[in-house]
């Protein structure tokens, strides 16, 4: 499992929200037994609906959790060059030393990331000056060069956030997250609030900056059409568990979990007039998840075994894992046009 090409390995990670009010203990299992590894130089997409635990998962990965969320079990190891670090075992100085320099974060609400009453350049010096560890002159030179490489004018450093459009602000937060050339970037729904035309430009920018720097990006969104265009591999999260993981093309052409098959098959497309069915039921309550496979109440293929036994995440193809008792019987709802599945090792 531990491979030199993996930048992050996660083993059996469990993180629960634990609350004790009036003597009643409540436990919300937002991240439940997740094992995955993220390679160098790839975009790893995490897909799942709201309240499936995907934001909790990336908060745990970013070592940015606060009570009541706590890591209960499992190991998390980053490998940056010759540094090998588990943020939950290391001291806070060691964790702060990797922040922004090796591990950075593109956040969803660009308006709440940038300080509204200060110019953009203050956000840059606040976030990036200390981690970069160079003198002021070199810092501004590198910042300007970085902005130019991302096709942003260095003049925006003088602007206030409200003077920029939503797409421009989102680009600034991407520049801010990448200015220290980090090896690992977490992107939490960076394009959800953007218009269609701007969305594609911002996605292309994330992809370009990832290619230039050879970093790894964990990209979170519930929109499968975004994943189709940016991710190399996708992990599907349902009710706190990883239910399927594989190369993007494989998940789109030959999914092996009924939830993935639904997500992919129900995407409306221009030129396609067939009726798309919606998934019945509602997302499960993580404080009281269904027994067995958590998807069974909404699953068209559910059998009695699914109600009692939790399916393990098993290899079903080349770098393709699925947690379903009936993985072999899953059929794609609507096959994607074009050539058959290509599995890139």
């Amino acid at each position: 499992m531990a491979d030199s090409t993996d930048i992050l390995t996660v083993k059996g990670l469990k993180a629960y929200y634990r609350m004790a009010y009036f003597g009643i203990d409540r436990e919300v299992r937002a991240v439940d037994d997740i094992t995955l590894s993220i390679r160098r130089n790839e975009v790893y997409g995490i897909a799942g609906e709201s309240s499936s635990g995907k934001t909790s998962l990336i908060k745990v990965l970013a070592a940015a959790i606060r009570p009541p969320l706590e890591v209960v079990d499992g190991a998390l190891t980053y490998r940056f060059g010759d540094i090998e670090i588990d943020p939950y075992k290391a001291s806070s100085e060691e964790v702060n030393a990797i922040r922004w320099k090796h591990l950075s974060y593109i956040m969803q609400g660009s308006m709440s990331v940038l300080n509204p009453v200060r110019r953009i350049r203050h956000s840059f010096s606040d976030f990036a000056f200390q981690p970069m560890g160079v003198d002021k002159k070199t810092f501004w030179e590198r910042t300007r060069a970085h902005l130019e490489r991302l096709n942003l004018s260095p003049d925006i450093l003088r602007a206030y956030p409200h003077e920029l459009s939503g797409g421009m602000r989102q680009r600034v937060t991407i520049a801010l997250a990448t200015v220290c050339q980090p090896e690992f970037i977490i992107a939490d729904e960076p394009t959800t609030a953007l218009d269609v035309v701007v969305q594609k430009d911002v996605l292309a920018m994330i992809r370009d900056v990832q290619r230039q720097m050879g970093s790894s990006v964990v990209f979170v969104t519930h929109d499968m059409s975004v994943h189709a265009n940016i991710a190399d591999r996708i992990g599907i999260v349902y009710a706190g568990r990883l239910v399927e993981e594989g190369p993007t093309r494989t998940l789109f052409t030959a999914p092996k979990h009924p939830y993935t098959a639904h997500l992919v098959g129900s995407l409306p497309r221009i030129g396609d007039t067939t009726t798309k069915a919606a998934l019945e039921g509602r997302p499960p309550n993580l404080a009281d998840p269904p027994s067995g496979c958590r998807f069974h109440p909404r699953c068209p293929l559910a059998i009695d075994k699914c109600k009692t036994e939790v399916p393990p995440l098993e290899t079903v193809g080349q770098s393709h894992r699925s947690a379903c008792w009936r993985a072999d019987e899953v059929k794609p709802l609507a096959p994607v046009a074009g050539q058959p599945a290509q599995v890139t090792p």
């Binding site: 035309v197 430009d201 292309a204 499968m224 189709a228 093309r249 221009i270």
Partner: peptide
């Protein structure tokens, strides 16, 4: 036409094709 070009298609899923409009 610009709007239509900006729609993210799933035809080339996983091919890394992402041309801005």
């Amino acid at each position: 036409r610009l709007l239509k070009q900006s729609v993210l298609s799933t035809e080339n899923a996983g091919q890394g094709v992402l041309e801005p409009a």
